[in-house]
């Protein structure tokens, strides 16, 4: 398969399942003992890990390993059976998705969730106003809803950074899948999240589009100091974006460490790549 990891990588990190943040800073995200079962089937079974401020972590694993469920628990779309999710030291408890978003958890979706009738710029404008709580009805009623110079500058900067400038005034419904993923990314970033959850961003993209997305993700993480939690099957994308990789299998974290170290671990190769 793609890019065989160097055999020289140290083994220590791979066997460790204590997935605490590697950097010394305070964790921006702390998942503790998370469990969730659907019907009788256990999807997530006592998962704990953390993300340091500004750290980029890839979450990989075979189908049914529970990655998507972990993701949904963090963003609040699913309520875990047991365990806690803390963001910036605060337990998120039963907080709904939209309030988590306002705290600074941005996300993109595996199946794009864009607003087809809005233009690219409007996506960013809406996100920006929601972020700054400037959505009161009275502003509309007294006709003070046109974008201000300030807002145009802010959204314009993000558009340029992501490379969406040329299509800024097109309705998103008319754009291709790769561009829609960039729109989602820009929409999430305009609110300056402290943590970005990216759910299979490469799914349905070809190699060129994936590479483009990887570079944008990496650049954003660097320039904005965002923490990124990335779920993807595309090994190359994870390698390009993640500082650290967590491997899940059967609802548990089975390995954590640098990309090379994790990919070299026999348990991971068996579970994920199918070769020992």
């Amino acid at each position: 398969m793609a890019g065989a990891p160097s055999p020289a990588a140290p083994k220590s990190g791979a066997s460790s399942v204590d997935a605490a943040p590697s950097a010394g800073g305070p964790p921006i995200l702390a998942v503790h003992d998370l469990s969730k079962s659907f019907g009788g089937a256990v999807a997530v079974d006592g998962v704990s890990f953390g993300l340091a401020e500004g750290e980029s972590v890839g979450l990989v694993g075979p189908n049914g390993a529970g990655k998507t469920t972990v993701f949904a628990c963090i963003s609040g779309e699913i309520r875990p059976d047991t365990g806690t999710v803390a963001f910036a030291g605060r337990d998120l408890g039963r907080m709904p998705t939209w309030r988590r978003a306002r705290l600074g958890i941005g996300r993109t979706y595996q199946r794009v969730e864009v607003f087809p009738e809005l233009t690219v710029r409007d996506h960013l404008l809406v996100a920006d106003r929601v972020h700054r709580r400037r959505t009161a009805l009275w502003r509309d009623l007294v006709n003070r809803s046109a974008p201000t110079a300030d807002e145009l500058a802010r959204t314009g900067a993000v558009l340029e950074m992501v490379g969406l400038g040329p299509v800024a005034d097109r309705p998103v419904g008319a754009l291709g899948l790769g561009t829609c993923r960039l729109v989602e990314l820009a929409r999430a970033v305009v609110g300056r999240p402290r943590l970005l959850l990216a759910d299979e961003p490469s799914s349905g993209l070809d190699e060129l589009e994936t590479a483009e997305l990887a570079s944008v993700l990496r650049a954003l993480q660097r320039s904005e100091g965002m923490a990124v939690l990335l779920v993807d099957h595309d090994v190359a994308l994870v390698e390009a974006v993640a500082d650290r990789v967590l491997v899940m299998d059967l609802g548990r974290v089975v390995a954590s460490g640098t990309f090379e170290a994790v990919m070299a671990a026999p348990a991971v190769r068996r579970a994920y790549l199918g070769t020992a």
């Binding site: 939209w98 309030r99 978003a101 979706y109 969730e113 864009v114 996100a127 999430a188």
Partner: peptide, 9 residues
């Protein structure tokens, strides 16, 4: 879903 993801109440 997308609206909730950007914090729309």
């Amino acid at each position: 879903l997308g609206a909730a993801g950007i914090g729309v109440n």
